[in-house]
Design a binder for these strands. Structure first.
Length: 367
DNA sequence: CGGTAACCTGGGAT
DNA sequence: AATCCCAGGTTAC
């Protein structure tokens, strides 16, 4: 009956009901979906400048590049998302400068929350200078990928998002994250997208494993329910406990997070880097592994990515790039994305054949 | 303790 | 058309 309450609350919160994509049996919280008729509130919107140039923050290189799945591209050079209870749009002006707009009642703390979320205290210029000094290729990439930042997200939101990301692809991750998001308080809609505050730990605890499975979470349904349950049993509350990890060393952060079901080294590193101030955390995925084999640890080319090698790759990144190695990883990672490679000149593009496309005759193993 | 086989799903390649 | 493969991995054996 908890879930029934949840359902009622959701129905009441929702102002509109787009098509019900994954139809759960009892609870139909629809994910955010394009619903054609968007209001034109944005026309008369008040845009406030942030003191950030495109080199400080590139929205297209920061929001749709895999560190969050909650922000939507709501117009050219414009992204909209939620920070706490603030529904915010960010966009580039013609000259590249960034400005923002609040869709909810503009509280004074909204700008503070926004700057915090953007990790605005970290100077990208200073940080990248170190990377470029230690890596000629990075210096080249930096010319084309300026403004690619690491965000400082809410830890709980980050945790759930990256639990969804494991062994998964972007489109389905986004669908799953949209579903979870729909369980939070409704905040408004922008350009056809519905936006919700991320559900609280309590709100998420009201959803069952079966509901998540029906929504297409697969085996991750069990992990999420388990992780939520584990968090609820933390003294002082799970959200507070997650925040407290910001004070720990990276090793301890990874160790603690890894105790949660569904959280392994990769997901833990993502949470650490994207939400827990662990700027030298290196999420080693297949892309980073390829980067490492090509440019960092060529002697490992061909071997399989084991836990041990995973740690070795992370160490190599920190050795080369220092205490903000995670920020360097973000840039190198973006350079690997098919969607971003197009903006790079030929000589900076990487790894034509990460996995050797099977050539005609398979009788011979190429070394 | 290191290595390996399942695991949900679905979109794209073969 | 039917399979296979892979996707920003983790768990259990």
């Amino acid at each position: 009956m908890n879930s029934l309450n949840l359902q009622v609350r959701i129905m009441m919160k929702r102002k509109r009901s787009p098509k019900p994509l994954p139809p759960p049996p009892s609870t139909p919280p629809t994910p955010q979906t394009q619903s054609r008729h968007s209001t034109n509130l944005s026309k008369s919107r008040l845009w406030i400048p942030l003191n950030l140039t495109r080199q400080d923050l590139s929205l297209p290189l920061t929001f749709p590049t895999g560190q969050t799945f909650r922000w939507k591209n709501t117009a050219p050079f414009q992204y909209t998302g939620v920070i706490g209870s603030h529904l915010v749009s960010l966009k580039h002006l013609q000259n590249g400068d960034v400005c923002y707009s609040l869709h909810s009642q503009s509280n004074h703390d909204a700008k503070t929350a926004l700057l915090d979320f953007l990790n605005a205290d970290v100077s990208l210029a200073d940080t990248w200078e170190v990377f470029s000094a230690n890596d000629e290729r990075f210096a080249g990439l930096a010319q084309h990928l300026g403004g690619a930042r690491v965000l400082r997200q809410d830890p709980f939101e980050c945790l759930i998002q990256f639990m969804c990301s494991s062994n998964n692809h972007i489109s389905r991750i986004t669908k799953m994250v949209d579903y979870v998001s729909s369980l939070g308080d409704y905040l408004g809609h922008v350009e056809g997208f519905d936006f919700h505050a991320f559900p609280t730990l309590h709100q998420l605890s009201l959803v069952s494993e079966q509901q998540l499975r029906d929504a297409g979470f697969g085996y991750r349904a069990k992990y999420i329910v388990g992780a939520v349950s584990a968090l609820q049993s933390k003294p002082g509350g799970g959200e507070e406990w997650l925040h407290s990890l910001r004070k720990l060393d990276l090793q301890d952060v990874i160790s603690e997070l890894s105790k949660l079901p569904g959280v392994g080294p990769k997901v833990a590193a993502c949470i650490a880097l994207y939400s827990l101030d662990q700027h030298h955390a290196i999420p080693v995925d297949v892309h980073v592994w390829r980067i490492a084999q090509k440019y960092l640890l060529p002697e490992l080319a061909g071997s399989k990515l084991t836990l041990k090698l995973c740690k070795r790759v992370a160490e190599a990144f920190v050795t080369k790039y220092g205490k903000y190695a995670g920020w360097a990883q973000a840039v190198l990672f973006i350079a690997e994305l098919p969607s971003q490679k197009a903006i790079l000149p030929e000589h900076l593009r990487t790894i034509k054949q990460a996995k050797p496309a099977k050539i005609e005759n398979s009788e011979e193993e190429s070394e």
